[in-house]
Amino acid sequence: MTTFSATMRSALLGVLALALVLAPGGWAAEHGHSAFLVGSSTDFTAIAKEIGKDRVQVYSPLPGYQEPELYIEEVFPSWIIQASRADGYVRIGLFADVWADSLVIDARNPLIYPGAPGHVDASQGIQVLEVPTGPVDRSRGEIHLQGNPHYLLDPLNAKVVADSILRALIAISPEEADFFTANAEDFKRRIDEAMVRWQEMAAPLQGKKLAAYHRTWSYLLKRFGLDIVGYVEPKPGIAPSPLEIRNLVNAMVRLDVRLIIHAPVYHPRTPRAVARQVLDRIGEPVTVLKLPAHVGGVPEADNYFTLFDYILTTLNEVLN
């Protein structure tokens, strides 16, 4: 009995002492930055860096070639540690990064709890595409209940996201408001300028038809006027059935489609099989093309601007 109480007391004291010694706090300030932002994807950290420059430190748990929506269960401990030190958290929203809920809670950091100024749901203010209608259940696969979350593949949406991040940064570090605001304005201006260039690059792509692995590209294709004829994986998250593959092949043959695009995270095996079947039917080679879906998806796409430069250049090379 006495041993029990004694052990318990010392164990509790030990926990408390450790807690005091190791409690996180003021991490960003200690490291010479006015703000430390964690984002669910590299796109957010790229945009945050455009606004905050060297006064903001950023961290994204996932490399750009990964897809945040594919992480359902895993929240790695190192992410939690980073989030516990963060001044702000930028999430994709639209149920794409469900894991961010538990990450934010597990981080035990009031600065990034939902409702705090440092918690940014970047989907706010975005005109969301493909919001499901009718009965929504898992018979349609892992569909996005609130619509397609790949909204940053339309460059104009980056302006909306930049404003959301700007608001959070100003709330975190009001004394830097002018600096952040000027950078955000500059970023939006550069997007507008680049948009002219991108539209010119996309002009020869107008109306071109292609197939894709997953519904990653809706915003991109809508903005630049390309036409999608089908998906290798029509029900998200569910491996395609032979019938679905046959339907896609038939559609590609009928419409003479010679390109299948996929995000880096998806293995090209099935798209290649589809390409071979189409080749057998029309006698023309079909290209399977890996395109980055986020900043850092391929080494060339190292910031938000080069992401679109790369995508449009590559599409032009293949389609024309």
């Binding site: 164990a11 509790l12 807690a19 401990p77 190192s78």
Partner: peptide
Amino acid sequence: NYQFASPFSERMTHVLWF
């Protein structure tokens, strides 16, 4: 429980439970 970063490595974390 209490989770904390390891002093040894950025990739290492610890959790203590009672």
